[in-house]
Amino acid sequence: MASFSTNEFKNGLKIMIDGDPYNIVENELVKPGKGQAFNRVKVRNLKTGKVVDKTYKSGEKVEAADVMDTEMDYLYTDGEFWNFMDPNTFEQVGASESAVADSKQWLKEQDSCIVTLWNGEPISVLPPNHVVLEVTQTDPGIRGDTAQGATKPATVETGATVQVPLFVDNGDLLKIDTRTGKYISRAKED
């Protein structure tokens, strides 16, 4: 089994803790002038996204996590699994609801996502930073009202709800930032 010494710790390194894969997001060497050295790390659980603090004695070995980020196209969902395909190998994987988590509200067919595979199984999905989605339900648009600040909710084709300016209408295409869940602009028809 591959392992890392704490001396190799750096941001982005994937390690195993209590049976779960984690990503190192911060690593600090704590070494008194005289005395035991430790590595204090902040790690993100790749399954739950939760960030926790952890301490290792320096020089300790920690098991590596077999984790890979792969670019894949979103295909469809059958309600139980969200299916993705590697555009190079055409290999398909099904991600469970807990793996797609909050990302599922931004998944549009054919969009390219980052799927994190652990031992070949998808554990998390990152949608593109920007997606273009069609409005399926919103109160009628008020043409010409471009007043700054005033917003109303709009539901888009994937089921997500975003706050949009008053002039947005049903059928409009919206560009949305998936990291913040915020409306950026109206998008032109392809």
């Binding site: 209590d18 008194p32 005395g35 035991q36 430790f38 204090r40 004695k57």
Partner: peptide, 21 residues
């Protein structure tokens, strides 16, 4: 700073970790 599953830290190491953190 340290979980029980990680085993017992010798006294001086425990002091180092507590004092620094």
């Amino acid at each position: 700073l340290w979980s029980k599953e990680q085993g017992i830290l010798p006294k001086d190491s425990a002091l180092d970790l507590l004092f620094s953190q």
